[in-house]
Simulated scan of single mutants.
Amino acid sequence: MILETGLAPIFATAAGLMGGVVLLAGLVGGASLTATTTSAMCQTQRPASASATLCGQFPDVIPVEGLAGPERGLIAAQAALLMRGVPYSWGGGGPDGPGFGIEHGAHIRGFDCSGLAEYAWAKAGARIGGHTSTQWNAGVHVPRDQIRPGDLIFFARDPARPATIHHVGIAVDASRMVHAPSTGSTVRTDTWVGDPYREGEFIGVIRPVS
């Protein structure tokens, strides 16, 4: 896990460039999107155990129609970061937030890796599906040296075979991701670059498009 102080400057700088960003309250009726401030989301949706470090840094509301790629990525990254501390639940979570999973996650309300990714990007107005196989095809492939916040970072048992993808994280920057690792853990931020396990399974990066 990284120091909280390492995250705020990333988003503060981006917010200055964009003139402010928002988090979206979620899909309403399966169709429309409602914009809300980060502060409002922190008060109404953020689990008590998650960190408040980034809450309230982006106060301006921007209509979803006016958001471009970088802004949407920042929204997705921020939404995922606000879920830190939520339990891992196999098959759990989706566009509306944490949910009960299946099998050994059936009694745990939380997220698995793809559920967290789906939730984060729903807040940015993109439907990417709830499974890594769908999410791998939900956008454009991005070179590793061009990763930006919100991009989806995928890992596979055999990096030559997309069919073996088993994990996804949401980029915080070029070297860190927020993800739901495994049963018994919680949503957290980790450095994946330089980690032999993650490096050995890295298969690629997708930037979702709506």
Rank of each mutant, 00 (worst) to 15 (best):
L74Q: 06
A138P: 08
W121M: 15
G73S: 15
E118N: 10
V168G: 02
G97W: 03
G97R: 04
A160Y: 01
L152D: 06
L82T: 06
P70S: 02
R161N: 14
G85R: 05
D151V: 00
P87A: 09
R148Y: 01
K123L: 09
A160K: 08
G139H: 11
L116S: 09
T132N: 12
R161C: 11
E118H: 15
S133N: 13
A156L: 03
V140L: 15
A76S: 11
S133K: 13
D112H: 00
L81V: 05
I75P: 09
L82Y: 04
H167I: 00
L152G: 04
V142A: 14
G69C: 12
P95A: 07
A156W: 06
I165N: 06
H141A: 15
V86W: 03
A68E: 01
G91N: 10
G130W: 04
D145Y: 12
L74G: 08
L81I: 06
A138C: 02
I147R: 06
R148L: 07
H166P: 04
I165C: 06
R72D: 01
G97K: 12
A80R: 02
Q78R: 08
A117T: 01
G105E: 06
G101M: 04
W90K: 03
G169T: 13
E118P: 13
L82I: 08
A138H: 00
V168A: 02
G92H: 10
V168H: 02
G85K: 04
G129C: 09
A77S: 14
H141G: 00
R127K: 11
I153G: 11
G92S: 15
G115C: 01
A122E: 12
E118I: 12
H166F: 10
P162D: 04
G169K: 01
F100T: 00
G101V: 06
P70Y: 03
G101F: 05
F100K: 09
R161P: 12
G97N: 08
